Amino acid sequence: MTYFVLALVVFAAVFLFSLVKIVPQGRELTVERFGKYTKTLKPGISILVPFVERIGRRMNMMEQVLDVPQQEVITKDNAMVKVDAIVFIQVMDAPSAAYRVENLPYAITQLCSTNLRTVVGSMDLDEVLFQRDNINSRLLTVIDAATEPWGVKVNRIEIKDLTPPVDITNAMARQMKAERERRAVITEAEGEKQAAIARAEGAKQAAILQAEGRKEAAFRDAEAREREAEAEAKATAMVSEAIARGDVNAINYFVAQRYVDAFAELARNPTAKTVIVPAEMSGLVGTIAGIGELVGLAREQQGPTRAAPPPPPRAARGGSVPPTT
């Protein structure tokens, strides 16, 4: 009796297990009735017909990553490169992925390998090395179209590693070194160019400032000469007025000024080794005395009367000072 009850419990457990199915999230189960596909169980709890229906395939509906093995590929210019990749897939239709292809991961991996050889083999080595995005997009287009009947969506394909031959790697290293040296030379030349421009600009500004300084100095000199000329014109006008009034001292002042200027110019001459002093120095002394009297007269006219300055001493030689009227 005990064994019978135990057997009944085991049978009931097996019956319930075959009757009720719980599908986890991210999975789908296909149901077969006498070996023929009938429906797909979504995530959740489902009940099957006992002894008639059974679970066929358990499909993973999450995105999966497949590794494409490394392989050697000959490029268009006969260079041997080693290429491997990874592919991201997602099952969109569980019945198609379960019943239209056997061993889905292996089939997709082989499909990627063959198309990778085709795409890389149609390109030159430089294109393979520097156009990985182009390779990825071409592979994605071809493989996604090929796996669509299987109910699989190929989301991405990425070239994981691409290894050129050793001699090509060495040539690329030398090329990179030469390119770096060329850029360094260009940068150095640009620096020298900028320095030369800066020096030229500095010289230009210095020349402009010097020219402006010379211009200002010339303007100041011209202004000084103008004022000197105005003063001389005023002095000449005053002497002319004195001469018009019949003042002999004014004539003596004018002649003495020219005499002194001429004698000073003769003394400053760098080519003259000997200066001859005129014998008629008394005439010069007399002229100076006349100048003194003229100055005194001017002071009397401009202010209160002051004592006239004493007459200068007579010259040692050359006679006496001519009398003034």
Rank of each mutant, 00 (worst) to 15 (best):
L41I: 07
M62F: 15
V120A: 00
R117K: 04
M123E: 10
P43S: 06
T141W: 04
Y99W: 07
S113Q: 07
N103S: 08
P69V: 10
E53H: 02
V101R: 04
V119N: 03
S122I: 04
G56R: 00
A94F: 01
L125N: 10
S113M: 10
C112T: 04
C112N: 03
C112W: 06
E63W: 09
R58V: 14
D124H: 12
Y37Q: 09
V87D: 00
L140P: 02
R132N: 05
T114H: 15
M92P: 02
T75H: 03
R138T: 13
Y106E: 15
D77T: 06
E72A: 12
M123D: 06
K36G: 14
E127C: 13
P105I: 12
D84E: 15
N103R: 11
V120Q: 00
I135G: 01
Q70R: 09
N103A: 11
R138S: 14
Q64S: 08
L116C: 03
Q70S: 14
Q64P: 08
K82F: 13
L48G: 01
T109Y: 12
T75K: 01
V128Y: 04
S137F: 12
D77R: 05
F34C: 05
A79S: 10
L66T: 04
A94T: 00
V91R: 01
G35V: 00
D144F: 00
I47M: 10
T109N: 06
F51Y: 08
L140A: 03
Q131P: 10
Q71K: 09
E127L: 13
Q131H: 13
P69H: 09
L48N: 01
A145H: 14
R100Q: 13
G56K: 00
D67E: 12
D144M: 04
K36V: 15
L66E: 07
D67M: 15
R132C: 06
V49G: 06
G56W: 01
P43Q: 04
L48Q: 03
E63H: 11
T118Y: 12
F51Q: 07
L125T: 14
E53W: 06
I135Y: 02
V81M: 08
S122C: 02
T109I: 13
G121E: 11
A145D: 12
V68M: 06
A107I: 05
E72T: 13
R138Y: 12
P69W: 10
